[in-house]
Amino acid sequence: MSTMVSPCPNRKTWDATVRVTGGHPQQLWGVGEAQVTAEGSGLRVDRVMVHDAEQRTVGYAQLYLRSEAERVVAGTVHCHVHRPQDLPVVAAALADWAREEHGAVLLRFQADTLRTRGTTEALEAVGFTRPAAEAGPEEPRRLEVVLGETERDLSQRLSEATLDRCRTALRTPGVTVREVTAGSRALANTGLRTRLITQLLEDLGEDSLLLVATETAETGGETALGYLWFVHTRGTAMIYRLGFTRRGRDLGMDDALLLTGIVELQKRRVQRLDGGDPDETEVPLVVRELSGTERAVLGPWELPLGRGPAGEFTEDVADAADEATGTAVAAELGLEDPVPAGSPEHREPEDEPKAGDGAERPARGRARRVRDLTRRVVGEGISALRDAAGR
């Protein structure tokens, strides 16, 4: 198949294409803009579409271009390929474009295509290999939460203990859950800083859902307990960023806010939630309980483009930028020292992995933790949840 690659400079056209074709939220224009905000001048984004000889779009990608020491490395995250059989054609076209237009020495390629018969062999046939950090006996997988039609569909999949934890958290006196939008003054009215948050909300637009939980003290002051940020298309949502104080986790707001958000995604007619790598310790309990399946995915691949050694600098740069931005968001929400899910301070003894429950699986995702959890996708009117505490 002959192909042609063309850049897309129009935001409305790009996002409309992502929504109509069922692309991953990682492909939304605002996600790329937010990543540039995180990394600064060290990152450029080139949004390109791949067409066949009849000018039909067969795939598209936000191509992330990072440079150091005059070397450019290109990368995609969940780029869209319409049909599995077009996977090697799209990958090869993006590689040629990255080399010829940007002088890239390496393409790190990740598509939203499921792993089916022949897909890995097709990538290998055009020169792609699995990165050394991804090698191992375990094949890449992703958790998937099918949202269903009603809140009852979700609650029936949760354990009674988890449901009770959520209900108790939302009914705690003084606890309030709010949706925050770019034009909202909800946080400003509680004394929380919103400069960076407002910028990210403007970047992400209507495809974002940011929920913040606060607690009113007896003295009348209001403090943040945690936040959960989804980015979504009509078909798929991902957890973009999240953070909770120790007090918030003790109350169960981490589970409660996630369940509240998923219910709101149902109202927006979102069909499923990308739950992330099942081997990641940071995957929330609610996601694990709601996930009915683990999807076999292709995972990351790479192809040297023949202009000298690429090095391994870009992953560290990207992860550090995402982590710094996530910390800045937490600080602006009043969460100066959020406790990450799965951290030693938060984990109870019974939370330790048990033999036969993934404890012996290789920690493939450790180096990708920030990228997958904060971009997710490191990662938006619609009815606001002004006060979910009384539900």
Results as ranks from 00 to 15, higher is better:
91 A>L: 11
10 N>C: 10
17 T>I: 08
243 G>R: 05
31 V>S: 10
44 R>M: 14
309 P>N: 00
203 D>I: 00
279 D>E: 12
26 Q>V: 08
262 I>H: 02
334 G>I: 06
374 T>S: 09
153 D>N: 08
241 R>N: 10
235 G>N: 03
192 L>T: 15
260 T>Q: 08
382 I>G: 10
221 G>R: 01
256 A>C: 10
28 L>C: 06
200 L>G: 01
336 E>G: 15
293 T>F: 01
12 K>C: 11
70 E>A: 15
43 L>G: 03
100 E>H: 13
10 N>F: 05
251 L>F: 01
350 E>T: 14
194 T>H: 03
115 R>D: 15
219 T>E: 15
287 V>H: 06
243 G>N: 05
59 G>D: 07
351 D>H: 09
60 Y>V: 07
75 G>Y: 02
44 R>L: 14
29 W>Y: 10
302 E>H: 02
282 E>K: 06
203 D>Y: 00
356 G>F: 10
222 E>A: 00
225 L>C: 08
87 L>T: 08
354 K>A: 14
12 K>H: 08
119 T>R: 00
121 E>G: 12
282 E>T: 14
248 G>C: 04
252 G>T: 11
305 L>I: 13
3 T>L: 12
245 T>L: 02
242 L>N: 03
266 Q>L: 09
385 L>T: 15
208 S>F: 06
124 E>H: 06
366 R>H: 11
186 A>V: 15
240 Y>R: 11
34 A>F: 07
71 R>F: 00
131 P>E: 13
53 A>C: 04
284 P>Y: 03
45 V>S: 05
123 L>R: 03
203 D>S: 00
346 H>T: 11
234 R>E: 10
380 E>D: 11
296 A>S: 13
272 R>E: 10
250 D>Y: 00
17 T>R: 01
144 E>W: 09
210 L>G: 03
160 E>F: 12
376 R>M: 06
32 G>P: 07
289 E>T: 04
